[in-house]
Write a protein that binds this DNA or RNA. Sequence first.
DNA 1: ATATAAGTTGTACGTTCGTTCCAGTTCCAG
DNA 2: CTGGAACTGGAACGAACGTACAACTTATAT
Lengths: 214, 214
Amino acid sequence: MSRPGESAQQRDTPVLTERGGVRKAAILEAALRVIGDKGLAGLSMRAIAAEAGLPLGALGYYFKTKDDLILEAFELHTRREADRVLAAFAGVENGDHADDIAEHLTAFIHHGLTEARTSLVAEYEFLIESTRRPDLARVSRAWRQALQIQVSHVASRLGSDDPETDSEIILSVIAGLEIDHLSTPLDPSTTQAIRTALRRTITRLGLRGNAARL
Amino acid sequence: MSRPGESAQQRDTPVLTERGGVRKAAILEAALRVIGDKGLAGLSMRAIAAEAGLPLGALGYYFKTKDDLILEAFELHTRREADRVLAAFAGVENGDHADDIAEHLTAFIHHGLTEARTSLVAEYEFLIESTRRPDLARVSRAWRQALQIQVSHVASRLGSDDPETDSEIILSVIAGLEIDHLSTPLDPSTTQAIRTALRRTITRLGLRGNAARL
DNA sequence: ATATAAGTTGTACGTTCGTTCCAGTTCCAG
DNA sequence: CTGGAACTGGAACGAACGTACAACTTATAT
């Protein structure tokens, strides 16, 4: 008997679709859901197993400890979310007006606060836990840095004269709007307030789609 | 035998300095510290008792359940923190330049990320938990609303032509900057980046201390 | 076919958890 | 002084926890 992590089938980019890999992926997905709606405080191996529809014993086979499982779940989340964020900003590059840009970001936040709410809550659970776990902190930092680099490129294309600062401001505003509206049900007037805040931010930063380079 | 919550000595504004009240306050303080450095996941009645230097049995006397304790700790935190935030913005009102305003906010964030880090982490623990507990969510909303009202008054005095939106932007930027730098040790260059972002935000929003009313 | 490895599952271990209880102590009104 | 109320603290409860393990089945390779 051996464990997957010790076996020769381990790769640089783990393939999660081979024999036992589907199960491993299902466990991580289940963990992300549990973290999202019960929090890390409510996360137990038994709760994950129940959510995944698997026996408790299965978890010990794929993950040495609960902490390992949490780390891998966070890595999975950042991999997936990075794509989503970049997609949101990619749609922005050819927009013509500041309002178009703001609209993309509004839709992004709106999605996070409604359909993807569980995932968003899980994300902030991880970020807070990162203050206590160096391994999670490394993932947080790498993710945040990747986001900022990409967003600053976008800001540069949109005519920013200080892309680094503007990307920091934009990412901060997004995070702040998300946090501030997580405890509240998202009604239309709230969405409108978010839109207004984003429009004003983008406009005042002087970002526009068809910007000539400075 | 009776419990304080059932007794006639209960008041609208609980006095925490009477006979057993000192202990109750000590328990809440201990809970805030434990939440800050072990998280809600690491919060146990025994950990609180140990942190407060009290026997486990004492907790059951002052708080019916752990959830009650958490709620009261959150209320204590918001009461205390509201004062601190308003003080930070109060020092801003008579400033002359956008840079002065930004400097106040930078100092505020810097303090939260260094000396008051434990308290800041606890705050975000509460905010995330608010997504799952309606009683905590009420506290979050009330607190957030109080902050926004006060900050929008300040923004108005600083010449904002849309104080509500500007206060939402400012509070979001602050929250975002805090969150984004919680997983990272706060070195001087990071502080400088925060200062730069705040300066640009304030400047671009057109806020200045000696503003004439529009 | 047979052996070896991979995957699977139910059970059980020792700990820690929130909460309850009660005998004992301190306080204050009468 | 005396009674009852407020307060104290240690012990104990059942429940839930993370993890380890051994018996078992399935797949793969020679």
